[in-house]
């Protein structure tokens, strides 16, 4: 068990949690504004490809980062157009966008790199893999960007005008509109933020693995969605649960040779917990009142 109480273990847990943290903040922005968002998974995927394509085309990881974030924003802007202007059901739109992202990234992977599995290697922003896990995590600028996103979300949602407006259109759009808050525009802004924050999860993933591989989001968007629900759509508890899932996965990796827990059990943990929360603590885990309403 002593292997669980090391700094390297802590670093590993945090690294696993980073994409959950970024993407769950994205989910919170969208859903607190009243727009259901099951497209976090697709957003992570397009941003990851965007980061790699941006890096290989310009030769700069920083430009890759920007292209990746823009790809995430673009996908969420499509979600905004379809839901807010097209008046389509947000669940339908989200599922279609996930399919579009899965198929589209594989199509582009073949178009750009003539491969159906992965892109060529890219440097990313993290220090070389030879450094220790702890050093690599602390010295990686994207780690601090995720931290900034988390702090920014907690502060902005509670203490800024934009945050107040987002919560207002998510709870009672008619009341918000009657005092002059532009409902559709506020929701579109929230979705653009979702695109950038969930997109950061994808960029992190691509830089961490130093390439794009087909389907590399690997369900992280759904874990983030589970995190949002379990946390009752509040950012601070979401941080706690994202870290909890990171610790659980890291512990499974460290202990796997001892066969203590099957990896499928750890894999299912966030989803089982979500169902338990939905069944038991439903009054505490209350969704935004106008979630899914035009």
């Amino acid at each position: 068990m002593s292997r669980l109480f090391t700094l390297a273990f802590l670093a590993q847990a945090v690294r696993i949690a980073l994409p959950y943290l970024a993407a769950s903040m994205g989910g919170i922005w969208s859903e607190r504004a009243g727009v259901p968002n099951v497209a976090l998974e697709g957003t992570i995927l397009v941003a990851a490809l965007g980061a790699v394509a941006g890096t290989t085309l310009t030769g700069s990881a920083w430009l890759g980062l920007i292209v990746g974030l823009l790809a995430g924003v673009l996908l969420q802007i499509v979600h905004a157009l379809v839901v807010l202007i097209g008046r389509a059901n947000a669940i339908v739109s989200g599922l279609a966008l996930n399919l579009l992202a899965a198929g589209g990234t594989r199509f582009l992977l073949r178009a750009l790199y003539d491969s159906s599995s992965n892109s060529p290697a890219i440097p990313g922003l993290a220090p070389p893999a030879s450094t220790s896990l702890l050093r690599a995590t602390v010295l990686d600028p994207t780690t601090w960007m995720v931290a900034a996103v988390v702090v920014g979300t907690i502060v902005a949602l509670e203490r800024t005008r934009l945050g107040l407006r987002v919560r207002a259109v998510g709870e009672h759009p008619e009341a918000a509109a009657s005092v002059g808050v532009p409902v559709a525009r506020t929701r579109a802004v929230a979705l653009a933020i979702t695109g950038a924050t969930a997109g950061l999860a994808g960029v992190w993933l691509a830089f961490d693995q130093r390439q794009f591989s087909s389907g590399m989001s690997g369900g992280r968007g759904f874990i983030a969605l589970a995190t949002v629900v379990i946390a009752g759509w509040r950012p601070l508890p979401a941080v706690g649960f994202a870290l909890l899932f990171g610790v659980a996965e890291a512990a499974q990796i460290v202990l796997q040779d001892q066969n203590v827990v099957a990896h499928q059990v750890v894999q299912a943990l966030p989803y089982v917990l979500t169902l338990v929360v939905l069944a038991g603590w439903v009054r505490r885990a209350r969704p935004p009142a106008a979630l899914g309403r035009p």
Partner: peptide, 19 residues
């Protein structure tokens, strides 16, 4: 042509039907 074009078309069909 990559067969994933089919997934893209299906996704677009769903989006277009929705809007």
């Amino acid at each position: 042509i990559p067969m994933e074009i089919v997934d893209v078309v299906v996704a677009l069909v769903i989006l277009f039907v929705a809007v």
